Simulated scan of single mutants.
Amino acid sequence: MVITRRVGCLRRTSGGRVGTERRSNAADRLDPTIAHNARVWNYWLGGKDHYAADREAGDHVFRMFPDIVHVARADREFLGRAVRFLADEAGIRQFLDIGTGLPTAENTHEVAQRVAPESRIVYADNDALVLVHARALLTSSPQGATDYVDADIRDTDRLLEAAGRTLDFSRPVAIMLLGVLNFVLDTEEAQRVVRRLMDAVPSGSYLVLTHPTLELGGEGNVEAMQFWNQNAKPPITARSGAEVARFLDGLELLEPGLVSCARWRPDPADGSGTAPAQVAQYGAVARKP
């Protein structure tokens, strides 16, 4: 995610409108000539919100590391399973989804409100095109609420302040960090971000994360990541399982633990009992005691 110091909140009004001025400002920030992660990810997922530069970079990375498309899809499917678990079995009614990316099918609010219509969801991202399309994330059941915060994850205090307009931080919240900590290149800084987020929520809250790795069959991604960091934005880093596990310090890790996100409580596909093929993306869900 590109660092930005602007933090704003688009709120759904009774007429279903959002701030047009903010969307105009976001359009001014767009650079279609440089591939951007949110748009390339959308391309890999089969979406339509991308430019020629994004498709070119996405195709190049795919040729270098063909499993990247499986990673993108497994990450998205993990989100659905995790949110369903949290809303249904864990009884969570508040979600802070940071680094949400471009809207696709089965967004966090759609999954959560299908289980519990009163759920409240705040999305946060700082990609200009995501902001332009934020209207799609601001649909909500009448009983619940959705908001969008234009913010960088490293501006954690300001992000939390904006999210607090919709979320009640005295009650449990699920902090969703799917494929976003890999854009915070300094591991100690990334750990500080996670600690600050989890310090802001009470006991009974959850941390949900995914993170790319060069383990789990991801060794072939080394050159693809180097290409990305030289030709696209924002720069990205992989981390080992041991490094990712540090983000979960002090939390109660749910079964099956820190695993390939494709293997976190997979939906039964054909009844064969065969585990899904793992992808080079760690996934975990943990509870704050």
Rank of each mutant, 00 (worst) to 15 (best):
C9L: 15
T13L: 12
G16S: 15
R17Y: 11
A27W: 13
R39I: 12
W41I: 08
W44N: 01
G46M: 07
G47L: 06
K48Y: 09
K48P: 01
Y51G: 08
F62A: 10
H70W: 07
F85K: 02
L86D: 03
Q94T: 07
L96K: 08
T100Q: 04
E106W: 05
E110M: 03
V111K: 00
R114W: 06
A116K: 00
P117G: 13
R120H: 10
I121M: 08
I121K: 03
Y123T: 05
N126H: 11
A128G: 10
A136R: 13
L138E: 05
S140P: 07
S141I: 01
A145N: 10
Y148S: 10
V149W: 05
D152Y: 11
R154P: 09
G164Y: 09
S170I: 14
R171V: 11
V173R: 10
M176C: 14
V180E: 08
D186C: 10
T187H: 12
V193H: 04
G204R: 01
Y206P: 05
L209I: 11
E215Y: 00
G220I: 00
W228K: 01
P234M: 09
A238P: 04
G241K: 02
V244H: 00
V244Y: 01
A245P: 01
L248C: 09
D249E: 15
L251P: 04
L253P: 01
S260D: 04
R265L: 13
P266T: 05
D267M: 07
D267K: 03
A277R: 07
A280S: 10
